Amino acid sequence: MKINQPTLNKIEAILEEAGYVIRYERGTFQSGYCILQQRKVVVLNKFLTLEGRINTLADLMPQLEITFDALTHESQKLYEELMAKPANE
């Protein structure tokens, strides 16, 4: 997966299609993110680099409630790719 702005935009689109709101805020997140499950809000540290944002969102995907059928075809392909990626990669 390429580390660039279009990749980040595609990952953000998956979350938005699943009903999540992504916010970039300043804060002391030990892991660089915070999930508010009941409100479907993902808050990322706004000081993360582009690579950090992509990797953090990709690592979060398995923890989130995402309905595969609600995604567009393009988002489904990227979602499957992200889910198939080994955790240590």
Rank of each mutant, 00 (worst) to 15 (best):
K40R: 13
N45G: 12
T49K: 11
K77Y: 10
F68R: 03
P86N: 14
V43E: 13
R26G: 12
E74A: 13
Y20K: 03
E74H: 08
I66L: 05
L60F: 04
N88P: 02
P62A: 03
E89K: 09
T56D: 08
E25S: 13
L78N: 07
I14G: 03
N9C: 07
L82Q: 13
R53D: 13
A13M: 04
L48H: 14
A18Q: 02
D59L: 01
Q63N: 09
N4L: 10
I14M: 03
Q5P: 04
N55M: 08
L64M: 04
E89S: 15
F47N: 15
E74Q: 10
T49I: 04
N88Y: 04
V41K: 05
V43N: 10
G52I: 05
I3S: 07
A84K: 09
Y24F: 12
L48P: 08
I22L: 14
E81F: 10
V42P: 11
Y33G: 14
E74Y: 11
H73L: 11
R23V: 02
L50F: 06
R53C: 12
V43T: 14
M1T: 15
L8A: 12
D69W: 00
L48V: 08
N9P: 04
L82V: 11
V42I: 14
A70M: 01
L82R: 06
E89Y: 09
E51W: 00
I54G: 15
A84H: 08
P86D: 15
M83F: 06
E74W: 11
E17V: 05
R23E: 05
F29C: 06
D69V: 01
I22T: 02
I66W: 02
V41Y: 05
L78V: 00
T7D: 08
T28W: 08
Y24R: 12
E89D: 15
R23H: 08
M83C: 09
E12S: 12
S31C: 00
S75F: 00
Q37Y: 07
T72I: 07
T49E: 14
F47I: 09
Q37C: 09
R23F: 04
D69S: 02
R23D: 05
Q5N: 14
L57Y: 08
N9S: 14
S31H: 02
R26N: 15
T49C: 13
L15Y: 11
E12M: 10
E16S: 09
V21M: 09
G19S: 05
N55C: 12
E17Q: 14
D69F: 00
A87Y: 09
A87I: 09
K85F: 01
K40Y: 01
S75Y: 01
A87S: 15
T49W: 00
E16G: 05
Q37I: 09
L78K: 06
E74N: 12
R26K: 13
E12F: 03
N45R: 02
E51M: 04
E80D: 15
E65Y: 00
L64I: 03
N9Q: 13
S75A: 03
N4H: 10
I54F: 06
E65V: 00
A18D: 04
T28F: 12
Y79R: 00
M83W: 04
N9V: 01
N45C: 11
L57I: 07
